[in-house]
């Protein structure tokens, strides 16, 4: 059982890494348009929150506080991206 949980953990991290890598790769590809980049980043971060939600739900430790933490980490990245590109907007 413990080994199964460990596999699920690793599978989640692997899937998350793949999803984030694909998303950030797309952001580099679309470097000519900050608006497209912003939209891709929003989609990637929403997927990140959803994955975190599912991961904790499967582990039976999903709490509102945890969901808020994922939302805040995503917001931090989104705002950091906005600040980074404030010279272009």
């Amino acid at each position: 059982m413990k080994q199964k949980q460990l596999f699920e953990h690793h599978a989640f991290y692997f899937f998350e890494l793949l999803m984030l890598l694909a998303g950030f790769f797309l952001i580099i590809i679309f470097s000519y348009s900050v608006i497209i980049q912003f939209m891709i980043l929003m989609f990637v971060l929403m997927s990140y929150i959803t994955l975190g939600f599912i991961h904790h739900h499967i582990n039976h430790d999903l709490r509102a506080k945890i969901v808020l933490e994922y939302v805040l980490i995503s917001s931090l990245i989104l705002v950091a991206f906005l600040f980074l590109n404030s010279s272009r907007l």
């Binding site: 991290y13 998350e16 890494l17 984030l20 890598l21 950030f24 952001i27 580099i28 470097s31 971060l45 990140y48 994955l51 975190g52 991961h55 904790h56 430790d61 709490r63 506080k65 945890i66 933490e69 994922y70 980490i73 995503s74 990245i77 950091a80 991206f81 980074l84």
Partner: peptide
């Protein structure tokens, strides 16, 4: 009762990589 630190490290780490690579 907190989120997975590894999740956060991965997403922030890749964002830092993006900052370095994106021109």
């Amino acid at each position: 009762v907190v989120g997975h630190n590894i999740d956060h490290i991965v997403v922030i780490g890749l964002f830092v990589l993006l900052i370095l690579l994106e021109k």
